[in-house]
Design a protein around this nucleic acid. Structure first.
Lengths: 210, 210
DNA sequence: TCGTTAGCCTAACAAACGTTAGGGGCACAC
DNA sequence: GTGTGCCCCTAACGTTTGTTAGGCTAACGA
């Protein structure tokens, strides 16, 4: 039945499902609609996936994993002793960039999540939790280095950041604000500092700190 | 066909639809499931609403309006010359409280939005825009009074705040963090200040500002 | 007392859903 | 040449969807 983890058709099916899921939600992501986007008939889908929900679950998982991996890679590329603010900016930027690059999947993971049957939702939860833990670490570093008031509950900071990032799927379109502008805004709101000189918008005009 | 804007059954139908929509999304909010929660049969729904989508739209609209009105009321209750930080805290708290009180509706408005047909989504957009404008004003005041670095793009601040607030539906459960804790956290992250003495957590232990 | 209306019912409709059965064609191994 | 899979097809299945038609009952005003 369900084919190996490779294959052209398989990834095309996932792409199509991601677009439909993110744009119009679970009810619109019918097997027939997915198949039509790929250029095959509905029944052929079942040579690659055992069920519709298996497709949906794969899309949701990938939507989270792809962002997680991008952020991990961005952090790994920094020097080991990089200060917390640099790490924060790198993580924000990587998250936003990955969200944009794999827009269909991340959009599906954020928007589609609520419309998906509970059976599909549950396995996705643990994947999300792993990503949240990564941010727990970043926030802890920020507070340890005094860039964020240590008295503010760390969960509040983490949830605010993740909320802002996740919600960015709803409004962010390239062109209005640049991706670096958004990452920079978020970082400065949280730390209320000027951007580090070696990151992104070095040419930005400076203003006296508050 | 569709009944007047009052009536016991009508509001019970809306309540039931909101719960289903928020918890399991548009596909699970079937006319039969809604009717079953109310204790009537599917066909009877059509004595109160012309279609399923009319119900869904009413739920989505109410989910936004109820929060908007709560925030407006909270701001109106403040003295006319209240400083921006006080207004910010009042607005945050009112948003969170309304989200919690009318949880089914706000949850449906945030989570269900993505899974709803485009025809239902569109009218809801203008309602959301009105609420966003309210926050545009708050952010402008914060920057005018120097509580937020005026160089940070105002849209970045607004979108971060609204993102954090909207996403709070996903994780906030009373008991872990109190509602005041969350509102206080968000306000302090944005302004990096101690809470104003006359608001909420006056008994909180103080720490030196960064 | 009668007519009207509101509110609910049963029954059924066409359409769309996810899914399965079974067959055809093409590519490669032997 | 002849098998053996892979990939896709047509056709159909049983179920569920939103919705409609039409009738019953109880309440209320004239």
């Amino acid at each position: 039945m369900s084919a190996p983890a490779s294959g052209r058709a398989r990834s095309e099916i996932l792409d199509a499902a991601a677009v439909l899921l993110g744009r119009d939600g679970y009810p619109a992501a019918t097997v027939r609609a997915i198949a039509a986007r790929v250029g095959i008939k509905a029944a052929s889908i079942y040579h690659h996936f055992p069920s519709k929900d298996a497709i949906v679950q794969a899309v949701l998982d990938r939507g989270v994993v792809v962002v997680h991996e991008a952020v991990v890679a961005a952090l790994a590329a920094l020097p080991a002793d990089a200060p917390a603010e640099v790490r924060l900016r790198a993580a924000l930027r990587a998250h936003l960039a990955a969200s944009l690059e794999h827009g269909a999947y991340t959009y599906a993971a954020v928007r589609g999540f609520g419309s998906v049957p509970a059976a599909v939702r549950a396995p996705n939860r643990s994947i999300r939790r792993a990503y949240e833990d990564l941010w727990r670490g970043i926030v802890a570093d920020l507070q340890a280095e005094g860039l964020v008031d240590p008295e503010i509950p760390p969960d509040g900071v983490r949830l605010m950041l993740l909320g802002a990032l996740n919600w960015s799927n709803e409004w962010y379109r390239p062109g209005v604000l640049s991706l670096d502008d958004v990452a920079d805004s978020f970082a400065r709101i949280v730390t209320q500092r000027q951007p580090a000189a070696n990151i992104a918008s070095a040419a930005r005009p400076r203003i006296r700190p508050l």
